[in-house]
Amino acid sequence: MKISLTIGSALAGLALSAVSAAAADIKPAVLYDLGGRFDKSFNEAAYNGAEKFKEDSGIEFRDFEIQNDSQREQALRNFAKRGMSPIVAIGFSQKAAVEKVAAEFPDLQFAIVDEVVDLPNVRSILFKEHEGSYIVGLLAGMASETGKVGFVGGMDIPLISKFSCGYKQGVVAANADAEVFENMTGTTGAAWNDPVKGGELAKSQFDRGADVIYHAAGGTGIGVLQAAADAGKLGIGVDSNQNALHPGSVLTSMLKRVDTAVYKAFDDAKNDAWTSGTNILGLKEGGVDWALDDNNTALITADMKTAVEDATNKIVSGEIVVHDYMSDQACPL
């Protein structure tokens, strides 16, 4: 009995090492936030990054969608116990869980998006959403004929105020007299997935004279963009490139490159180039960007393009500093 057990475990050990040697040395994993894998936004971007890594490298990854808060730690630990690394946790709500589990497994690599976890084996990935929002705000301000633009946020949390504050600064930079209407969809998680209400909020802003509306509202924003297309006005997408949803009616999209961040985390681990610490990705690092493709070239004039490139350069060089709402919980506008 004892002998067979020993042989068994020896065989298992061999099999394990054979597998890991054949499949490459990393076993990456992604833990999504409550929104789930296919939320058409933030979590899906992470999924796309992981999928792209799988295509390019042939390395499989595992992922998990949580159902409640208690599962965050449980899922991270489940990954960690299986020796998965790097483990990328998506969303600021994962902070407490990553702090705990990363400390328990100091030899594994963890990453968290949108929060900072100060541990030697954790890479914290932050985005300067205010910079990207500033750029699309600039475009909105220039594209608007009425001098009135709108913003529809998802859930009323500081992160979304960060989007809206950057946007307002961009709008005002383009047109100092512009008026910005701002609505948040709701105060619960459901606010991320309520396209009907998003559409209604957009319509009411159009009724008040707005002709460009930027959304930072996940699935709710689908309704905002739909309402803009129906009204013959302009919408601005967020997180992923949403220009193709309504070609000609989406002015541009503010890209938050969660996909690139996830891809890079996996790739760095694969190439032994893993670094821990805080990565803040802004315009300079390509972490945020605006989308220009066949669907919206007709909407972006040469003037707008020049202005955006100019502003981008100035932000990158530090000449323009876009105020970050989260730095002091206040917006100057």
């Binding site: 859930m155 949390i157 500081p158």
Partner: peptide, 24 residues
């Protein structure tokens, strides 16, 4: 249920949240 949800978000965001945290 909805009122509770709004109330808690308001309290967590405006009264109870620890300073400098993103998470309500």
């Amino acid at each position: 249920n909805f009122i509770a949800s709004s109330l808690m978000v308001y309290l967590l965001n405006n009264m109870l949240k620890k300073a400098g945290s993103m998470q309500p």
